[in-house]
């Protein structure tokens, strides 16, 4: 288990979290992953980095600095993405009963403390 993987442990321990990943922001590739169920982490990485990139562009166009965290809420779950150091993204996917408040705090802690 790499140290990158260790940083994902607090996320996957939160009830309802189906997958937690570190993703390369530019490439949309999985750098490290910890999934609780059989989920397509490559799809999560590719799609979350693409969504992040579009929101980042919109944010910059509006005269603001890039975003720090996004939460997409849907019928059957949520996707949370946080910008981290080293052009990485912290990503978590929850089921519909997932505690997104705890996931948000864990991602903000990762943002604050770094991945190493």
């Amino acid at each position: 288990m790499t140290r990158d993987h260790d940083v994902l442990e607090p996320l996957v321990r939160i009830p309802g979290v189906r997958a937690a990943l570190l993703v390369a922001e530019d490439d949309g590739l999985v750098v490290s992953e910890a999934s609780m169920t059989d989920v397509d982490t490559a799809a999560i990485a590719a799609l979350s980095s693409s969504l992040w990139g579009k929101l980042r562009k919109t944010s910059v166009a509006s005269g603001h600095r890039p975003p720090q965290l996004l939460q997409l809420r849907a019928d059957h779950g949520a996707l949370l993405v946080a910008g981290l150091e080293r052009e990485l993204l912290g990503v978590a996917v929850t089921g519909d009963t997932g505690n997104t408040g705890l996931v948000r705090l864990a991602l903000l802690a990762l943002q604050r403390d770094g991945v190493r």
Binding site: V23, D27, G28, L29, A43, A45, A46, L47, S50, G53
Partner: peptide, 8 residues
């Protein structure tokens, strides 16, 4: 786009 999207 990105390599991740192309690959997926």
């Amino acid at each position: 786009t990105s390599l991740g999207l192309v690959q997926f």
